[in-house]
């Protein structure tokens, strides 16, 4: 890709990278106190994956800006981060953030790769497989939390609704971004927000916070 007129795409790459960077951080900080030893170990492993995805996305951003760096280091605090994960302090908030953020990132990356497959396969095809694994894990935990006892299902739904709003807003901005459309990375009929909503709606909860049996 040429380096000019890539500002919107650089911003997009950095938003995804920043969120993955923070997910990697929170999966360790919060995940170390997971509900079971298996959950904690999985969380640490997922953290390693999220941080490596962040590195691949930062490298892509650097390449687009013509920055020749072999090693990608975080030199600043990530800025473009969705609040759910940034503020996660317990396992429910962590799992909701992991699932919601990655559903959105997967939708965007699939759209970009559909349009720029040849350019990006070398960098991202392994990451896309790993991303699917992370989503499977997070979704399984969503189901466990939804079907748990006491106040957990209600807290889960409250967190889900809080997490979804800023992500939906971001996806809406991405799918309507003229610069991204002109670059040919996002189609005019990408329907990212609809795809995101449909996927989130597969969780067995209602919008009023009740569990669907």
């Amino acid at each position: 890709m040429a380096h000019k007129n890539k500002n919107a795409l650089v911003q997009l790459a950095e938003t995804m990278a920043d969120n993955k960077y923070v997910m990697g951080n929170r999966l360790v900080e919060v995940g170390v106190s997971g509900p079971t030893i298996e959950a904690t170990l999985s969380s640490i492993s997922l953290s390693q994956g999220e941080l490596s995805h962040a590195r691949l996305l930062y490298r892509w951003s650097n390449d687009m800006q013509g920055l020749q760096t072999k090693k990608v280091k975080a030199v600043k605090q990530p800025e473009k981060v969705f609040p759910q994960m940034k503020e996660a302090t317990n396992w429910i908030e962590l799992i909701v953030g992991l699932y919601v953020n990655n559903v959105a990132i997967q939708a965007v990356l699939r759209e970009i790769m559909k349009n720029k497959q040849q350019e990006l396969n070398l960098q991202f095809s392994k990451m896309m497989i790993e991303l699917e694994d992370h989503l499977t894990y997070a979704k399984e935990w969503c189901h466990l939390l939804i079907h748990d006892k006491g106040s957990i299902p209600k807290k889960f739904v409250e967190n889900l609704e809080r997490a979804v709003q800023p992500v939906e807003k971001w996806l809406n901005e991405v799918e309507n971004n003229k610069e991204l459309q002109q670059l040919g990375v996002i189609s005019q009929d990408s329907n990212l927000t609809s795809l995101f909503k449909e996927t989130i709606a597969t969780l067995p909860v209602t919008r009023t916070g009740q569990r669907v049996s």
Binding site: S45, Q48, G49, L51, S52, R55, K126, M127, E130
Partner: peptide, 9 residues
Amino acid sequence: MTFTSTGCG
């Protein structure tokens, strides 16, 4: 070359 995972330490 490649690696078994993107997070290979």
